[in-house]
Each structure stands twice: as structure tokens, then as C-alpha cells.
């Protein structure tokens, strides 16, 4: 029991630390958020303002913007800690590294994922989505964005210290984002067409459970290799 408690304490320690660091450098969060807004704003400018068309592409467009916005934060997930040596100290903690990694991933989601969920209604209105579809979109992003952080963390850990890691992360991670994108954007689309979103959302949920079980472990293995 006390061991479990210590593990939770370590998890929250890593989470708190990363949140505190973000509070000291707020611009970094705002950059990802601003990116999300600007990409979704540029899209109608490139495609044309017909409400029917916009309504049709809205789920896919917002999901792709969310993928890219998450990627932006990923490169910094471990790189700064790697450069200043604090990651090394984490790897030498008596607590499992995967617990600390889970804390860091949670922080990444709170900073890069959750704001997108909260911002989605505003963008949804720009795309003329009906209110109930916006609800489904928010729900799909709420389940899907943690998944993006979890999968992305593996890529960020693998490319740590590699040449050209910023671009490499995208190459490794984007193909793995395919199922999340399909089920996430598909949920909204099939809701609009009247098929119901339950199937998509529950599959997305199943993927999330799988990723929670698997990703911190794979990320930890990748980090230990990168630290060598």
C-alpha cells in the first residue's frame, strides 16, 4: 500500500513539475493553441465559404488540425529534459520511470490536448456545425486527444537525440495516428448522417485503454535506449 501511494506521489510530482514549467513559459502553450485556430481558419479561405461544404469537412479538418497541434508540443516533451540532464535523473529514480513518463504525458495532454477540446465549439461554429454535432465532436476530441499524446510520446522518446528529430517525429507518429483520426472524425460524421456515434466512440475508447496500458511502457523502453 505505501508503495502504491509513493507511486501516485511520483506521478503527481512529474505532472506538477511539468505544469509548473509551463506556467513559467506560457507562450509555448499558446503557440499550439494559436496554431490550431489559424489552421482551421485558413481552411475555409482555401476551400470556399459554402456552408454545406464546410459542414461536411469540419470534423476531418478539425481533427487534422488537432493532430498537427499535438505534434508541435511533442518535440518538446522530452527534449528539454534530455538536454539539461533532468531526464537522466528521472531514469534513476527509485520509482518506475513509466510512472513519471505517465505524469509527463498527462501534463502534455492537459496543456496541448484539453485546450483543443475546450476550443472546439468556437471553431465548430465557424464551420456552421449544429450544436449536437459539436457536442459529439468535443466528446470525440476528449477521448481522442489523450490517445494522440500517448502514441506521440513513443515517437518523441524514440527520436530523442537523433538527427533531425523534429521532422522525424512526424514521420513516425502520423501513420500511427490513422485509427484515431478515422474513429474521431468518423464519430461526428456518422452522427450527422444519422448512423449514431456510439460505435466510433467506443472503439476510440478501446484504443485509449490499450494505449494507456501500452504506451508508457513502450515510451520508457524507448527513453532508456535514447539515454544510453
Amino acid at each position: 500500500m505505501p508503495q502504491l501511494f509513493a507511486m501516485f506521489a511520483a506521478y503527481f510530482a512529474a505532472l506538477n513539475r511539468d505544469l509548473l514549467l509551463v506556467m513559467r513559459r506560457k507562450t509555448e502553450v499558446l503557440t499550439a493553441l494559436f496554431f490550431f485556430v489559424i489552421v482551421t481558419t485558413l481552411l475555409p479561405l482555401g476551400i470556399g465559404p459554402e456552408p454545406d461544404l464546410l459542414r461536411k469537412i469540419a470534423p476531418g479538418a478539425m481533427w487534422i488540425a488537432a493532430l498537427l497541434a499535438t505534434l508541435l508540443g511533442l518535440q518538446r516533451l522530452f527534449a528539454a529534459d534530455h538536454a539539461d540532464g533532468t531526464l537522466e535523473q528521472m531514469a534513476l529514480s527509485p520509482e518506475p520511470l513509466s510512472i513519471l513518463v505517465a505524469g509527463k504525458i498527462t501534463a502534455h495532454w492537459l496543456v496541448c490536448g484539453l485546450p483543443l477540446v475546450l476550443l472546439a465549439p468556437v471553431i465548430g461554429l465557424q464551420f456552421d456545425l449544429p450544436t449536437d454535432a459539436i457536442g459529439i465532436l468535443m466528446l470525440s476530441l476528449l477521448i481522442g486527444t489523450p490517445l494522440l499524446s500517448l502514441i506521440g510520446a513513443i515517437g518523441a522518446a524514440l527520436t530523442l537525440g537523433a538527427r533531425g528529430s523534429a521532422l522525424l517525429v512526424s514521420l513516425l507518429v502520423l501513420p500511427l495516428y490513422v485509427p484515431t483520426l478515422i474513429f474521431g472524425a468518423g464519430a461526428v460524421e456518422s452522427y450527422i448522417t444519422g448512423l449514431g456515434a456510439a460505435g466510433h466512440l467506443s472503439l476510440l475508447g478501446a484504443l485509449l485503454v490499450l494505449a494507456i496500458a501500452f504506451s508508457p511502457w513502450a515510451t520508457t523502453a524507448a527513453l532508456r535506449i535514447s539515454l544510453e
Binding site: L20, R24, D84, E88
Partner: peptide
């Protein structure tokens, strides 16, 4: 075991107290 490498191992944006506290907390 405690290993101190040649890195600073401190976060530039945190104070010394905060740094030490977070390192200790992550050690459980």
C-alpha cells in the same frame, strides 16, 4: 545509489528550492 552527471540537471525556469523539491518528489 545517487548519480550526478556532468549535466546541470536543473530546470532553468525553476528556483533551486523548486528544483530540489521536484527531483526529490519524483524519487518518491
Amino acid at each position: 545509489m545517487l548519480y550526478l552527471g556532468h549535466h546541470a540537471s536543473l530546470k532553468e525556469d525553476l528556483t533551486l528550492t523548486e528544483n530540489l523539491r521536484s527531483l526529490m518528489a519524483m524519487d518518491g
